[in-house]
Amino acid sequence: MILLLLIGCFFSVAQPILDAPDFSYQKEAQIKAGAKAFAQSCFSCHSMNYMRTDALTLAAGIKSENAMAWPKDSWMGHPPPDLSLVTAYRGVDYVYSYLRGYYLDAEVEGGYENIVMPGTQMPNPFSLMQGDQVLLTQDIAHKRLFEVLDLKTKGTMTPQEFEDYVTSIVAYLVYASDPSEADRYAYAPWVLGFLAIFVLIMIRLDLVYWAEIHEQHDHEKN
């Protein structure tokens, strides 16, 4: 019964299932490409403030002092946010699906609506590259994005090229939200390997010390 109660708690609001980006095995190259793509498609409005001294970021031409400074009341009080930590608070899949989730909607100012963030203020940055998508059905709950969105007109990129482009941007954003990942993964085997050996030695040492106590106890019992 307790299990049923807990399962009941997990049913949530109707939303499409978010797509997960398929990151390349050549992480560094993809992040570099993503930084260039970010400079091209995002940096005209969004800042990347916490990466002010990151070599890879500076090499792509993303310099904090060149970032657009928006007044607080611009964009109806929601100026474009800094994107240094966006994948950390929105989630990687959310950002990836958001960037690929624009579709034509004549009723909306600007002409595009977004499937994961309805009513978003951000104009579709990719309409030329991606082409235009249309919504196939209003019933989007628990559906995959490819089931409800369809490409109506071709863009300058093929669907595969566009997917790679967006994936690289997301890869760069993930990197920016925590640049320590490469360092951490490099140290981890040494730290954990040392501890594993240390624990094995300590278990052996513990057994040696305690053999005496156990012997004595058995002796007393007999």
């Binding site: 951490r184 993964y185 140290y187 981890a188 730290v191 954990l192 501890l195 624990v199």
Partner: peptide
């Protein structure tokens, strides 16, 4: 070992 696995691999 457990603590640092989290710190290094899934902070």
């Amino acid at each position: 070992f457990i603590f640092l696995s989290v710190v290094f691999l899934a902070p």
